[in-house]
């Protein structure tokens, strides 16, 4: 994955529900969303109080559960939609989005 294409990865989508912040990111890690990145994601998500929901295709998962994240089966190139709600939701979204882009 070249650096250029990751640049425009985070795209804020209009949230349909009030209170939800959402963004779409593309997975750049070579091995997709494997154990270590997923563990890191869940760990950071747990640091924040906001609710975190992750969608990949038609599957939906809890961003604070490592198994739920792994079960998305997200691979490199797949697009994840992150949604956050609650205290400091926007900051949470930003942090997690960047984490995935980092790969």
């Amino acid at each position: 994955m070249s650096k250029k294409s990751t640049k425009s990865c985070v795209r804020k989508t209009k949230s349909c529900n009030p209170g939800w912040h959402s963004a779409t990111v593309k997975i750049v890690h070579r091995e997709g969303f494997h154990t270590r990145p997923a563990a890191q994601f869940a760990e950071i998500a747990q640091r924040f109080a906001a609710e975190v929901e992750v969608r990949c295709g038609r599957k939906k998962g809890d961003g604070k559960s490592i198994l739920s994240l792994l079960a998305l089966g997200a691979e490199r190139g797949d697009k994840l939609t992150l949604r956050t709600r609650g205290p400091r939701a926007e900051e949470t979204l930003k942090a997690l989005g960047k984490l995935i882009q980092k790969g």
Partner: peptide
């Protein structure tokens, strides 16, 4: 650490 998170995962 990842293993611990798996073990503690409610799922």
């Amino acid at each position: 650490q990842a293993h611990r998170m798996l073990l503690n995962d409610p799922i």
